[in-house]
Amino acid sequence: MFGIEKPMPNPTEDTEKYWEATRKGELLIMACGDCGHRYMPPMPICPVCWSESVKWTKASGRGKVYSFIVVHRPQHPAFFPDAPYNVAMIDLEEGPRIHSRIVTEPGQMIDPTLIKVDMPVEVVFEKIDSETTLPMFRPTT
């Protein structure tokens, strides 16, 4: 069988600070130094005003669920053992929308029937290995 390793982040100059921060338990997003727009994924120009004065800034880690899906038949064989698993899109309170997963605590997937659109959530960090820590989200009240 080929390609059974999960596709984990392969940081580049544009993204390495994000992954470095997750290992320290911090969630970063991009901020424009000129117009103040907050965005993800990272890129070297602001998508709104095209300013090049952009930098990483710390996010509060709070947000709400924009969408969630439950993958029963993964497209990539490395995810077969995890199925069914959820993927959620989270609207961070600063504005950016990111992919993640809803958990009860790091490493513990939630019963998907408990996930609702607009549900408030907060970030937690799940260590995958020495290189990779993934931001996950858990429900808040």
Binding site: M8, P9, S67, F68, I69, V71, V87, H99, V117, L134
Partner: peptide, 21 residues
């Protein structure tokens, strides 16, 4: 690298989000 690690891969996961909305 911001979607794949969560297993959000392919046209179908994208369209499932569209359906959810």
């Amino acid at each position: 690298q911001f979607a794949f690690p969560y297993g959000d891969i392919g046209a179908i996961t994208f369209m499932a989000h569209v359906a959810r909305r």
